[in-house]
Design a protein around this nucleic acid. Structure first.
Length: 551
RNA sequence: UGUCCGAUGGUGUAAUGGUAGCACAGAAGAUUUUGGUUCUUUUAGUCAGGGUUCGAAUCCUUGUCGGACAACCA
């Protein structure tokens, strides 16, 4: 059997609840607010919530927490659904907090009737003033002791649109002296004469998060309501409302959100990058959004593996982005077809190869996958190789091409450098080489062992393509620690565009398809491609131990 | 100043009173028609003090450090 993997603290809770018979099966939910695109941090939550239900035989609802019409849009709803599907998860139900507005209204009425909620006419400032501070207790509002009848009437008038935005709020009557600020008579309904993306203009009062989230959980009979650490103080209120409303007792558990090096997860700041056109959009391949990562060439398999590896705990964390890249490379290595592309070409003339002749040479599509087959590469007298793959005065342990030295051309022949041609300025323009006909790949009888193998393309048939080379968007390791304007820490070199030369088979690539450009990295075809110009995004470089040792 | 949450190699995460383990990152080597992959080996850790115990990363206590909390956001 496979090794027993240790459980995270939430799995432990679930297993205990299941074995004790507290629940026959579990219900979780993923509750995004449709006011932005999902990012990598959400992926952790999605994998956790859906993963739990999958592992323990339960179900997961997708529920949009759409209680603030001012910031929410249908565009976001669609993108969120897309991203979850892309990650590979299926929700049992698609729900909206706005589906429950009628019921939520009735819940509030019930609270009023129990004498546990009141309409407050205080201004926002007055409410804040009376709220106290974390270290000093609050004071009661002068409107706190209105009669049930008056509250009922006022609340109904709020709903009917009799008041302007901010003129009145409905507050739960808890305890203004509570050590937990959230328990100091929290606002549960506010007036917003705003168009809602689903309910239109039906409502002009909307519940606050605390009066929607737990209630929605209860309505759906969510057994384990899993959220991030910043909601810990809300748990008191969550439980208080469930108790007073006498509804299904969902339980809230909190875990530490994902933070990653050189990355920023704040939806507000990401929106800023989009609005200020610092990036091309939510799906800019440099964005930590799921759409961005997808366009960049990240795979759902890599994300799921990553989420599995980072674990779930309650301490703040800052995950090294190299772990994500490791997961990515591991997956891409298995699935990406190999192709040869020369980025910075220097011309190689094979002086003993007949002019006008083209030979087709087979090359494996992926050495890690024997089922991936081969493709044919044209080889003739004039080729391009990478400038970096030649050194006139080779460094020690450099085993690529140098004057008088031999190197293997991948899937082709061993060549030997005979002559270096330069222009008047001393720049290398051509390398004159000879090839060893008996060293042909697959039928090599030369008996020679060369240390280096390099990639190349046939000059005549080379396909010019655009390569977009991405680097991290931010320069600071811990973006949450920076003070001042985060935009001062944007990497000016996060995108470099280069015209490069590809083997002809790349003309058949389809959008989103991943390739390994030999020795250069993983790339995928971008949607910006046209028939005249193919565009490839660099997903991630290959590990490069040589570059490291040179440095 | 208060309440709550947390603290294990560089980074994550296990060990649930009984050998501090795993992964990433780093280092060294082997293999390789990708300086990729793969395979070896290796560096490095329980926040501090006190207590309970035959035995403490784990329990108690004090302290230190980090985070959260004073939106009509979620």
């Amino acid at each position: 059997m496979t090794e027993e993997k240790s459980l995270n603290f939430i799995e432990e809770i679930v297993e205990n609840d299941l074995s004790s018979g507290k629940y026959a099966s579990i219900v979780t939910r993923f509750p995004p607010e449709p006011n932005g695109y999902l990012h990598i941090g959400h992926a952790k939550s999605i994998c956790l919530n859906f993963g739990l239900a999958l592992k323990y035989g339960g179900k997961t609802n997708l529920r949009f927490d759409d209680t603030n019409p001012v910031t929410e849009e249908t565009e976001y709803v669609e993108s969120i659904k897309d991203d979850i599907r892309w990650l590979g998860f299926k929700w049992a139900n698609e729900f909206y907090a706005s589906d429950y507005f009628d019921q939520l209204y009735e819940f509030a009425v019930k609270l009023i009737k129990k004498g546990l909620a009141y309409v407050d006419d205080s201004t926002s400032e007055e409410i804040a003033e009376l709220k106290g501070t974390p270290t000093t207790s609050g004071k009661e509002s002068p409107y706190r002791n209105r009669s049930v009848e008056e509250n009922l009437k006022l609340y109904e008038e709020m709903k009917a649109g009799k008041f302007k935005d901010g003129e009145k709020v409905l507050r739960a009557k808890v305890d203004m002296a509570h050590v937990n600020m959230l328990m100091r008579d929290p606002i549960i309904y506010r007036i917003k004469h705003a168009h809602h993306h689903r309910t239109g203009d039906t409502w002009c009062i909307y519940p606050m998060y605390d009066f929607a989230h737990g209630q929605s959980d209860a309505i759906e009979k969510v057994s384990h309501s899993i959220c991030t650490l910043e909601f810990v103080p809300h748990r008191d209120l969550y439980n208080w409302l469930i108790e007073k409303l006498e509804i299904y007792p969902s339980k809230q558990y909190e875990f530490a959100r994902l933070n990653m090096t050189y990355t920023m997860m704040s939806k507000r700041k990401l929106l800023q990058l989009v609005n200020e056109k610092i990036v091309s959009g939510w799906d800019d391949p440099r964005m930590p959004t799921l759409v961005g990562a997808r366009r960049r060439g990240y795979t759902p398999e890599a994300f799921r593996d990553f989420c599995d590896r980072i674990g779930v705990a309650k301490r703040d964390n800052l995950i090294d982005i190299s772990l994500l890249e490791f997961c990515l490379r591991e997956h891409l290595n298995k699935i990406a077809l190999r192709r040869m592309v020369v980025f910075d070409p220097v011309k190689v003339v094979i002086t003993n190869f007949p002019e006008g002749r083209t030979e087709m040479l087979p090359s494996e599509n992926n050495p890690e996958d024997t089922n991936s087959g081969i493709r044919e590469l044209p080889f003739s007298r004039v080729l391009f190789i990478e400038k970096d793959d030649f050194m006139e005065n080779p460094a020690k342990k450099y085993f690529r091409l140098a004057p008088g030295q031999m190197v293997r051309l991948k899937s082709a022949y061993i060549i030997k450098c005979k002559n270096v041609v330069k222009d008047s300025a001393g720049n290398i323009t051509e390398l004159h080489c000879t090839y060893l006909p008996e060293s042909k790949s697959g039928s090599d009888t030369s008996g020679l062992h060369v240390k280096g193998t390099i990639h190349w393309v046939n000059a005549l048939t080379a396909l010019p393509i655009e390569a977009r080379l991405y680097d991290r968007l931010f320069t600071a390791e811990d973006m949450s620690a920076i003070e001042g304007d985060f935009k001062e820490h944007i990497n000016p070199d996060s995108l470099k565009i280069q015209q490069v030369y590809a083997e002809p088979s790349l003309a058949n690539a389809s959008t989103g398809q991943s390739f390994q450009f030999l020795r250069m990295g993983y790339f995928c075809l971008d949607k910006d491609s046209s028939s005249e110009q193919l565009v490839f995004n660099r997903t991630v470089t290959l590990r490069d131990t040589w570059a490291k040792s040179v440095k």
